[in-house]
Amino acid sequence: MKTFGYTIQNDRQIDFDAADKKLYRYVAEKEPDINLCIFCGTCTATCSAAEFKNMSFRKISLFLRRGLTENLKREIESCMFCGKCTLVCPRGINTRNIIFNIRKGIEEYEF
């Protein structure tokens, strides 16, 4: 199955078998906190960027695990690194380091 850019959103299902977990493994190795998310959404609710643009750390965390790199790229680009999400996370996840390493990982694998 081939997907191009934005069409991936219209996929009927998440093809977990075909999902590319390379990026997830890269990030998880650098920042194991990625596995601690309980998807409460506090990060997204507090996010400075989310005031103006689609930006959800919770979704980023999911996209990464499901191998949905295209969605991930769109979601991640407006992060300003302000650190509010780190401050509110009930699981103490080092959110900024995850964003940092996703950006690095995508750069490493795709560019």
């Binding site: 998807f39 409460c40 959404g41 506090t42 990060c43 997204t44 609710a45 507090t46 996010c47 989310a50 959800s56 919770r58 979704k59």
Partner: peptide, 12 residues
């Protein structure tokens, strides 16, 4: 209140 409606995937 600032919350994310996580099931809708949108800030609320």
């Amino acid at each position: 209140l600032k919350v994310e409606d996580t099931l809708m995937g949108k800030p609320l």
